[in-house]
Amino acid sequence: MAAANQDTIIPLSLLPNDSWGEIVAVEIMGPVKRRLLDLGLVPGTKIQFAFSSPLGDPRAYRVRGTLLALRANEAQSIMVRRSEQ
Protein backbone atom coordinates (compact mmCIF):
# COMPACT_ATOMS: atom_id res chain seq x y z
CA MET A 1 0.00 0.00 0.00
CA ALA A 2 1.30 3.47 -0.87
CA ALA A 3 2.19 5.73 2.04
CA ALA A 4 -1.13 7.30 2.91
CA ASN A 5 -1.44 11.00 3.45
CA GLN A 6 -1.45 11.76 7.18
CA ASP A 7 -4.87 13.36 6.88
CA THR A 8 -6.54 10.56 4.97
CA ILE A 9 -9.25 8.83 6.94
CA ILE A 10 -9.48 5.10 6.32
CA PRO A 11 -11.21 2.15 7.95
CA LEU A 12 -9.05 0.42 10.54
CA SER A 13 -9.25 -2.73 8.38
CA LEU A 14 -7.06 -0.99 5.76
CA LEU A 15 -4.37 0.11 8.20
CA PRO A 16 -1.08 -1.49 7.07
CA ASN A 17 0.69 -3.96 9.31
CA ASP A 18 2.62 -2.37 12.22
CA SER A 19 1.40 1.15 11.49
CA TRP A 20 -0.57 3.34 13.85
CA GLY A 21 -3.80 5.23 13.47
CA GLU A 22 -5.87 7.56 15.59
CA ILE A 23 -9.55 6.72 15.90
CA VAL A 24 -11.83 9.44 14.53
CA ALA A 25 -15.18 7.65 14.57
CA VAL A 26 -16.86 4.34 15.38
CA GLU A 27 -19.49 4.00 12.64
CA ILE A 28 -21.62 1.24 13.99
CA MET A 29 -24.75 1.30 16.14
CA GLY A 30 -26.16 -0.61 19.08
CA PRO A 31 -24.54 -3.04 21.49
CA VAL A 32 -21.46 -3.62 19.31
CA LYS A 33 -20.66 0.09 19.41
CA ARG A 34 -21.17 0.07 23.18
CA ARG A 35 -18.75 -2.84 23.52
CA LEU A 36 -16.10 -1.22 21.31
CA LEU A 37 -16.33 1.98 23.36
CA ASP A 38 -16.06 -0.03 26.59
CA LEU A 39 -12.88 -1.61 25.26
CA GLY A 40 -11.44 1.89 25.00
CA LEU A 41 -11.94 2.48 21.26
CA VAL A 42 -13.07 6.07 21.58
CA PRO A 43 -12.19 8.93 19.20
CA GLY A 44 -8.65 10.19 19.84
CA THR A 45 -7.31 6.75 20.82
CA LYS A 46 -4.11 5.50 19.15
CA ILE A 47 -4.34 2.00 17.69
CA GLN A 48 -1.82 -0.24 15.91
CA PHE A 49 -2.39 -3.21 13.63
CA ALA A 50 -0.20 -5.78 15.45
CA PHE A 51 -0.75 -9.06 13.63
CA SER A 52 -3.25 -11.12 11.74
CA SER A 53 -4.71 -14.59 12.21
CA PRO A 54 -3.89 -17.05 9.38
CA LEU A 55 -7.05 -16.26 7.43
CA GLY A 56 -6.86 -12.51 8.03
CA ASP A 57 -9.92 -12.39 10.27
CA PRO A 58 -9.82 -11.66 13.18
CA ARG A 59 -6.83 -9.38 13.58
CA ALA A 60 -5.00 -8.25 16.69
CA TYR A 61 -4.61 -4.56 17.47
CA ARG A 62 -2.56 -2.84 20.12
CA VAL A 63 -4.47 -0.22 22.08
CA ARG A 64 -3.93 1.39 25.49
CA GLY A 65 -1.14 -1.04 26.35
CA THR A 66 -3.14 -4.18 25.60
CA LEU A 67 -3.86 -6.43 22.64
CA LEU A 68 -7.36 -6.67 21.29
CA ALA A 69 -8.84 -9.01 18.67
CA LEU A 70 -11.32 -7.45 16.28
CA ARG A 71 -13.40 -9.03 13.54
CA ALA A 72 -13.08 -7.67 10.02
CA ASN A 73 -16.59 -6.19 10.09
CA GLU A 74 -15.80 -4.39 13.34
CA ALA A 75 -12.49 -3.05 12.00
CA GLN A 76 -14.31 -1.84 8.86
CA SER A 77 -16.59 0.34 10.96
CA ILE A 78 -13.80 2.05 12.89
CA MET A 79 -12.43 5.08 11.03
CA VAL A 80 -8.83 6.09 11.70
CA ARG A 81 -6.37 8.76 10.61
CA ARG A 82 -2.79 7.57 10.03
CA SER A 83 -0.60 8.74 12.88
CA GLU A 84 2.70 8.34 14.70
CA GLN A 85 2.69 6.17 17.79
Binding site: D38, L39, G40, V63, R64, G65, T66
Partner: peptide, 9 residues
Amino acid sequence: ATCLERNLN
Protein backbone atom coordinates in the same frame (compact mmCIF):
# COMPACT_ATOMS: atom_id res chain seq x y z
CA ALA B 1 -1.52 -1.67 37.27
CA THR B 2 0.11 -2.41 33.89
CA CYS B 3 -2.88 -1.16 31.86
CA LEU B 4 -4.70 1.28 34.10
CA GLU B 5 -6.06 3.29 31.21
CA ARG B 6 -8.25 0.48 30.00
CA ASN B 7 -9.25 -0.60 33.53
CA LEU B 8 -10.39 2.83 34.67
CA ASN B 9 -13.45 2.67 32.40
